[in-house]
Design a protein around this nucleic acid. Structure first.
Lengths: 185, 185, 185, 185
DNA sequence: GATGAATGAGTATTCATTCAT
DNA sequence: GATGAATGAATACTCATTCAT
């Protein structure tokens, strides 16, 4: 059954997001997901692969969530804001996923397999490139525009989860506008 | 001698920034800093305290670097940009410190002792509050303005270190402008 | 298998009785009992629990040995002497157990869980209480009668093991009589 | 100054009696006695010698206390009881010394240097031998008479300290009589 | 005599991974 | 597929002892 695989991944996410990688032994993952230690090695070659697999899954989910209902037919600003709001909403609703990604991506031992997501990330770059071509966005590398747009969003979601700001609709809108302003000439 | 304490902290920073917390055994810290394991426990109660101490030291250094030559007499924009450039320059010149902070601040086991730096962080908040009062900045919580200003900077430094963007003077200026635009009405 | 657990306990008893607690590393227990260090922690939470468990086991065995074939139907003196001889015989035949108990019970770090053996110790107290009621024993707290009866026995077994006295049948009988005299009016 | 040596011995006694040998690091002894670690090694070759020295000192003190005012001129029973009461009183008033001795004498690593006290112990053996010669005591090895007399006393002092019996004057007298009865024909 | 920084071997415990059942 | 007992290398931390000052 894929049930077990899924249970393992879910337990791993929950445990790691609140205990960290190294504080999450395989035995605890096994107990939490209701399986034996041994069977984890049937689904994943080792702990590293389990975590990489989890990373890919979460990364894809968040990218898909950002691009839900995305259509290149709509006007640029609407598309940008839609993506932006999707990101914030998904992050706020899935705090464990964000915590996991933060840990993973800030771990020095992990090589970031950027290429794996090339296809999934393409729409973002198309969007930024189109904006530059049309003279709406400042002429900077797409990755730079990406960070100007989403780094503050990510940071503020963390601050919200930590209880330092209250991310309500009004604030979200204000921040969205600020990000839009940052990248538009 | 404070020599040994300093050597331990330095080795810890270098090792952790490239191997991570849990991949940096005390024995390796000892060997790298040229001391015995035992003496580490003379200067620090345990590994956790060693790392917390390192965190405080680095955090203070970076805050001090950002506020070097800072004077409330200068115009708002100049002060903002000075801090902003100081931050980028220091981060680019001290990549290990940034990597260490990222790891530390994204570790779920660590309670971030925000208060410890209250005094050192105050000038930032004064700056943002003044900007809001004078109608130059959008009226948002100072912490939000802070993240709008610095989150992209931090993200792009990471991208630079990872080799995905080339942070030259021109790009720095463009990003600085974008951040300034983000927070100004 | 309970085999391993038993092997661990046996090795622990032998090692501790001749080397002491702190001179008996877990690694030596593992090697002596032919298991890995790790598996010890499968059967016992930690070294302390292993030793407490061993204590309970030994204490129970010695109490059971003292009360072997004990029947409240027999005359008081016979019952007393039977217990007394059982104790001496068992102690002489199991010198390591005695050495272990002496160490354990004289360790200042251990709380003696008297209650755990309440049930197993009850027959002794019934015996002393009956003797007092019937006017055979001096009217003293049962625990005092107990020590008057068994403390010399225990001390002399130690002396025998250390080679300072030779505990033959004749001496045993003489000491048994002396103890009986001590507690009878 | 002998002050330091004495301070070290006193701290060692107090610490060991409540924490045990192995839980009493030299550094703690140093701190408690208000000296440096290094200086301990000026007065004692090493930890073992320190503890042996302490043992001898305490053992002698307790033997001297038992024989205070002892005079071979007095009648046998008076002499016996005087020693017996002296022992109990001293033990009750110096519980740390008793705890230390119990630990030391039940440690399997220690060879009991019986001979060291031969001279100090002689009066006891003279007493028992005289009693046997005069037909007052049962004809048993003096060491056996010794244990019949003092083992219950020692055990009951422990029980008193542990709070299981209340060793008041009345009980002391009763136990003294019982011990006397044990060894007299 | 006196200090306490320094050493490094030694210890309890953890945990990824394997494998007999 | 599934279990969980078993392994043993790895790790944080301790502490008797030394020695430069």
């Amino acid at each position: 059954m894929k049930d077990k695989r899924a249970a393992i991944l879910e337990a791993t996410l929950n445990l790691i997001s609140e205990r960290g990688f190294y504080n999450t032994p395989m035995s605890l993952i096994a107990k939490t997901s209701g399986v034996s230690t041994g069977i984890i090695y049937h689904y994943f070659a080792n702990k590293e692969e389990l975590i990489n697999e989890l990373y890919k899954e979460i990364k894809l989910k968040i990218l898909k969530a950002m691009l839900a209902d995305y259509s290149e037919g709509e006007p640029l600003k609407e598309r940008f804001l839609e993506i932006w709001y999707n990101y914030i909403r998904y992050s706020l609703q899935n705090p464990t996923k964000g915590l996991f990604l933060d840990q993973f991506e800030n771990s020095p031992l992990v090589d970031h397999v950027q290429e794996d997501f090339a296809e999934d990330v393409a729409p973002f770059f198309h969007l930024f490139e189109q904006g530059i071509r049309e003279g709406v966005f400042v002429s900077l590398p797409p990755l730079v525009l990406f960070e100007l747009s989403f780094a503050p969003a990510a940071a503020l979601v963390k601050r919200h989860i930590a209880g330092f700001v209250e991310m309500d609709d009004e604030l979200m809108q204000a921040v969205a506008n600020a990000c839009w302003k940052a990248i538009t000439g």
